[in-house]
Measured scan of single mutants.
Amino acid sequence: HNLTITQGKLFFHYNPKLCLSEIHKMEEVSGTKGRQERNDIALKTNGDQASCENELLKFSYIRTSFDKILLRWEPYWPPDFRDLLGFMLFYKEAPYQNVTEFDGQDACGSNSWTVVDIDPPLRSNDPKSQNHPGWLMRGLKPWTQYAIFVKTLVTFSDERRTYGAKSDIIYVQTDATNPSVPLDPISVSNSSSQIILKWKPPSDPNGNITHYLVFWERQAEDSELFELDYCLKGLKLPSRTWSPPFESEDSQKHNQSEYEDSAGECCSCPKTDSQILKELEESSFRKTFEDYLHNVVFVPRKTSSGTGAEDPRPSRKRRSLGDVGNVTVAVPTVAAFPNTSSTSVPTSPEEHRPFEKVVNKESLVISGLRHFTGYRIELQACNQDTPEERCSVAAYVSARTMPEAKADDIVGPVTHEIFENNVVHLMWQEPKEPNGLIVLYEVSYRRYGDEELHLCVSRKHFALERGCRLRGLSPGNYSVRIRATSLAGNGSWTEPTYFYVTDYLDVPSNIA
């Protein structure tokens, strides 16, 4: 807008934040220059609390790290170098490059900038070799853009010569660093050979998330399962459950009422301010606690030095998902009996873990797994792929695949051998790939016309006998059925096997 004052003059007093240069501009645009008398524009009460600059400061050096910015700028000295009290560095987070010096300023003089007072450097006698002032900004957020400017702080001049310097606002972004852990990993099994893994992005990506790394490792069953005799009275049979499938998407929606109208769909109840505040506090606490764990609990591995020492970490090797089922080394339970199943799973520490690289999504279907087997899954978020990966501390989750139908069934015939004193040795093959492992066998036998009897055969007993022995049988026709019990439950009964026990007292003698 054009402003013209045809008559009258300007009068400025007691404006401590208004620089004289701005008042002189007002004289020019209003056409009143030359009308004012000496005392109409006070030299001592206008701009006496402001830094009124008329020179431009330029930054000469900028260096960044993930949490620091090192700045240096060209030296500046007023005509009387004693008038320079120091520099004021202003900075704040700036997602967009549209910041002005006066953003967030209120009537009390406060604003949204963080201000650092910096002492002037030592003055050199040689004007050509003056030290460049600077400042190291610490405690910054990774991968965050900051708006920065600097200006001088000078003393009051009796001659009211307006001098000083100020830089333009520059924008500097800190470097990326390792992201925080992925949030809320959930693993479920939808079949006997697959596990579905879902997660949420890290709360602090500290860069642009480029991919996720998912490692999985087959877990050995508890050692007590191999040692305890679950045929003993009072000892509860062990059981394991597989990871249940995901709930429906509708039930997972946030901010939804727990109660549904019987007449149909209901609208979600909005969260109160107290609920939102509580969630923010919980989120802040979780982030602080995660940072504490990362800094205190997890110790970084030592990389190899120039002395030739090897990095103890196993090298990563990509495998196809079809090879995942046989990740671990199978060892027989008892070496003397080769027909026992290889369900003991000690994992070799030198073995390469299978892994998958996930790009542009937060889910993965891990296939080719062994049925009813526990897996430990390790999830890392990465925001750099080359020249070397920059990934987060791992988040861990466990899951067990679903049982395989008929995996616990005894394959092959049940054979028998009759000894003296009416002892019958029953023999059968253990299931080759049971659900988890076989903890015991149930032997059901009966003599024709009598009630059915049951015998429990422990895992250890089966390994020693290759089956079991029935003792003290009365003469007669017998039928026997056997079924295995694994961590997933009972298998199917075998087809009945028949044998006849004679009275050993009636056996004919070869003595003449």
Results as ranks from 00 to 15, higher is better:
242 W>E: 06
413 P>K: 09
462 F>Q: 13
461 H>S: 10
343 T>F: 13
351 E>A: 12
449 G>C: 11
213 L>A: 13
355 F>L: 11
432 K>S: 08
464 L>T: 12
421 N>I: 01
249 E>A: 13
445 Y>M: 10
300 P>R: 09
448 Y>H: 13
242 W>T: 07
485 T>N: 08
341 S>I: 13
505 L>Y: 14
216 W>H: 06
422 N>T: 11
226 F>I: 14
387 P>F: 06
276 I>Y: 08
342 S>P: 05
501 V>E: 01
223 S>A: 12
484 A>V: 05
478 Y>C: 00
404 E>Q: 14
247 E>H: 08
386 T>I: 10
387 P>I: 13
475 P>H: 14
265 E>D: 05
275 Q>E: 13
335 A>R: 12
329 V>P: 11
211 H>S: 05
416 H>T: 10
268 S>N: 08
445 Y>F: 03
337 F>R: 08
309 A>N: 10
203 S>W: 11
492 S>H: 15
488 A>S: 07
482 I>V: 09
425 H>T: 09
233 K>E: 04
376 R>L: 15
204 D>S: 06
290 E>G: 09
442 E>W: 06
415 T>L: 12
227 E>V: 13
339 N>A: 10
229 D>W: 12
455 L>D: 15
320 S>R: 14
292 Y>H: 04
331 V>D: 12
349 P>K: 07
322 G>R: 11
408 D>H: 01
239 S>R: 14
263 A>W: 03
223 S>W: 09
343 T>N: 09
438 I>N: 10
499 F>S: 01
362 E>I: 15
267 C>F: 04
454 H>L: 05
332 P>R: 05
481 R>W: 06
276 I>T: 07
356 E>D: 06
324 V>M: 07
303 T>S: 08
256 Q>P: 12
244 P>S: 13
456 C>M: 01
474 S>T: 09
493 W>C: 01
464 L>D: 07
419 F>T: 11
231 C>V: 01
384 Q>S: 11
411 V>C: 15
498 Y>N: 15
449 G>E: 15
285 F>Y: 06
302 K>Q: 14
307 T>G: 09
298 F>A: 05
303 T>N: 14
487 L>N: 06
313 R>N: 14
332 P>L: 11
227 E>M: 12
455 L>F: 11
430 E>M: 04
472 G>T: 07
418 I>K: 15
506 D>G: 14
217 E>P: 14
307 T>M: 07
452 E>Q: 14
332 P>K: 05
354 P>R: 09
317 K>W: 04
300 P>L: 05
373 T>M: 08
279 E>A: 06
458 S>Y: 14
